[in-house]
């Protein structure tokens, strides 16, 4: 399974005051709090950690079918941050996920997978965040058709095989990202 999450940094600066009393301790483990507070760019660090947690959470939600709001139980570790990207691990009780993130000046986008090989056939498509983004995706895609279930879960069908592939969509502010896999199916 795959999951992604995106934060528009400009939008986040308007919407969220994570420095308010009590916020960080509800969201971050003590180790993560330290990473944020000691970072040269604390906002970027917080939103990197946040997107990692949310991307992994999407996998858990699809697996269990249960929605819970427990960012603190998704623990980020082994963070390796470069200028424009980072990697790491998110663990949730007995499960753990491998993470890769893109760090731009204006947004942060994180991708979670269950196994390293799952990164191999993964594609990323950025689109304009418009209501008909699925139409735009389908125009660009040669083989896939993107649709949504009534409950809003994205569904990606290969036009020739008819198989449903693993897909995840995240939208925030000015950005929208679709990730999907050639090799992983919906149930994988």
């Amino acid at each position: 399974m795959i999951g992604n999450d995106l934060v528009d940094l400009r939008q986040a600066a308007i919407e969220s005051n994570w420095r308010r009393k009590g916020y960080l301790v509800k969201v971050c483990t003590p180790e993560e709090q330290e990473l944020v507070l000691e970072a040269s760019k604390p906002d970027e660090m917080l939103w990197l950690i946040w997107t990692m947690k949310e991307a992994a959470c999407k996998i858990i939600q699809r697996k269990t079918g249960i929605r819970r709001y427990e960012p603190i139980n998704f623990c980020c570790g082994s963070l390796n941050i470069n200028k424009k990207n980072s990697s790491g691990i998110v663990s949730y009780f007995k499960d753990s996920f491998l993470m890769r993130s893109e760090l731009s000046d204006t947004f942060i986008h994180s991708v979670a997978v269950s196994a390293l090989k799952d990164f191999q056939h993964l594609h990323l498509q950025y689109l304009r965040p418009e209501p008909d983004y699925r139409t735009a995706f389908n125009r660009l895609s040669e083989f896939y058709q993107l649709a949504g279930t009534p409950s809003g879960i994205p569904e990606l069908t290969h036009q020739i095989t008819g198989q449903k592939h693993a897909v995840s969509v995240s939208h925030h502010g000015d950005y929208l990202a679709v990730i999907y896999s050639d090799s992983l199916l919906l149930a994988d």
Binding site: E15, S16, N17, G22, Y23, K26, E54, Y69
Partner: peptide
């Protein structure tokens, strides 16, 4: 999230 379209990062604010 689904009906009020509240950003998940703001759910913490609601709790606080």
């Amino acid at each position: 999230i689904t009906d009020l379209k509240i950003n998940s990062a703001n759910l913490v604010d609601i709790v606080l």
